[in-house]
């Protein structure tokens, strides 16, 4: 473990930021290009994880544990959101037999 982490010493912080940004953006793109509510939701999870990773990186970089603690809260949120989100999706599926978000545009203008 120790050696492994030592190898990381050389990784510039910016690379983590870049990685997170890329994955975050991939999540964003996922939200944009998909119509399936669940997949969209998964893309959002991807975004959250990108943030998590960045937080952890910052935390390590700063030598400050609060960043990692924050990740727990994000995870708690993720859990709560998943529960609610999936409940909503199930509810909608029950009513419309679809989870295509494009079908859901009765409310507009």
């Amino acid at each position: 473990m120790q050696s492994l982490t030592n190898t990381m010493q050389a990784v510039p912080l910016n690379n983590y930021i870049l990685l997170s940004a890329i994955i975050f953006s991939i999540g964003v793109i996922g939200v944009l290009i998909r119509r399936n509510a669940i997949v969209i939701f998964m893309s959002v999870e991807l975004m959250l994880n990108a943030v998590n990773l960045l937080l952890a990186a910052f935390s390590v970089y700063r030598g400050d544990a609060t960043g990692q603690v924050f990740v727990f809260f994000i995870m708690a949120l993720a859990a709560a959101e998943v529960a609610i989100g999936l409940a909503i999706i199930v509810m909608i599926y029950r009513n419309t037999n679809s989870i295509d978000i494009n079908v859901l545009n009765r409310l507009k203008w």
């Binding site: 939200v31 959002v44 959250l48 959101e81 909608i92 978000i101």
Partner: peptide, 22 residues
Amino acid sequence: ASNEAALKYFLMGAFSTGFLLF
């Protein structure tokens, strides 16, 4: 309508939470 509202709110809310967290 209520369903739709919930889903829209949820999806977009979660999405924007991502930005807030970032």
